[in-house]
């Protein structure tokens, strides 16, 4: 009697969402891992093949260059997005009259999806800057940045920082305003300089905000796809493909479902491991209040 009632309650409240969650997420995930050990061609599997899909993936030199490019992108964007976002949060929480007004502006790029932002910057890098460079003779910009692998990397970083810093700024603002005023007053009375207060009081007390923002940028960096497609499209010559785009191309453009999926599983393992390490390390710096 009691278990029948609790079963009914489970079905009423949790049945539908859990069913959809399993169908959409759990089943394809388990499937996907299984497929990598078979000769799956996108339609059917005939036999188990062990680790050969993985072996083949790692023999692909473009996969290695994509991994290197992605790692560099993740590290550089993580550092810059968070440094800029924290700076913006400091500006917006200083006792400036127009702080709210500024906050509105900083957040705007975040509203617009990566594809539209990527396309806007493609116009800027390919046309607007080049036209100006020829007019005013700026050597650095005469050739579009998107046609050179190294410069295209920085173009990707610029757009990513511009897009994500507004969101992370909000996370940092939340952290900064959660610090109790009496702690700050005490440090002021003790004669601590603003810089000293920032590093020994504010940052340790808001370490949780760093944990969250670092986690979000880490995950965002590995999953970046929209800006990549719209800004560089992976070019020139597939040298600026981040891992998402690489997997997409491998599977949907070249029809390599087996290796594409094993690269996707590798990506999952890297993301999970990196996030786990980051959260564990960040948590250690959090102060219990």
């Amino acid at each position: 009697m009691k278990s029948a009632r609790s079963m009914k309650r489970f079905m009423k409240f949790a049945g539908v969402p859990l069913a959809i969650f399993s169908i959409v997420l759990v089943v394809p995930f388990v499937n996907g891992v299984y497929y990598t050990f078979t000769d799956w061609d996108g339609f059917e599997t005939t036999k188990l093949v062990g680790f050969s899909n993985y072996a083949e993936s790692f023999q692909d030199p473009t996969f290695w260059s994509t991994l290197r490019f992605t790692a560099l992108f993740v590290v550089v964007s993580l550092v810059l997005v968070n440094a800029v976002a924290f700076g913006l949060a400091l500006i917006v929480t200083s006792k400036l009259k127009s702080a709210n007004f500024l906050r509105t502006f900083f957040f705007v790029p975040n509203l617009v999806g990566g594809v539209v932002l990527g396309v806007i910057w493609q116009f800027i890098f390919n046309s607007a800057i080049v036209a100006l460079a020829n007019k005013y003779d700026w050597e650095l910009f005469k050739q579009s940045w998107l046609q050179d692998t190294n410069k295209a990397f920085w173009a990707l970083i610029i757009v990513t920082v511009w897009q994500s810093s507004g969101y992370m700024m909000i996370v940092y603002i939340t952290g900064l305003i959660s610090i109790e005023n009496d702690v700050l007053e005490a440090s002021q009375i003790d004669g601590a300089s603003p810089l000293r207060t920032l590093f020994t009081i504010k940052i340790p007390l808001m370490a949780q905000a760093f944990t969250i923002a670092l986690f979000l940028t880490l995950r965002g960096g590995f999953m970046a796809y929209d800006v990549n497609v719209a800004l560089t499209g992976g070019g020139p010559f597939r040298t600026t493909e981040l891992i998402s785009l690489h997997i997409f191309q491998d599977a949907f453009a070249n029809g390599n479902f087996g290796t594409g999926q094993s690269k996707a599983v590798v990506m999952f393992l890297i993301v999970a491991l990196a996030a786990l390490v980051q959260v564990t390390v960040s948590k250690r710096y959090e102060v219990q209040r």
């Binding site: 499937n31 996907g32 796809y225 998402s244 997409f248 599977a251 479902f257 999926q261 999952f268 993301v271």
Partner: peptide
């Protein structure tokens, strides 16, 4: 933590 890319193919 699972990125969409990890399951989009299956």
């Amino acid at each position: 933590i699972v990125p969409f890319q990890a399951l989009m193919i299956p």
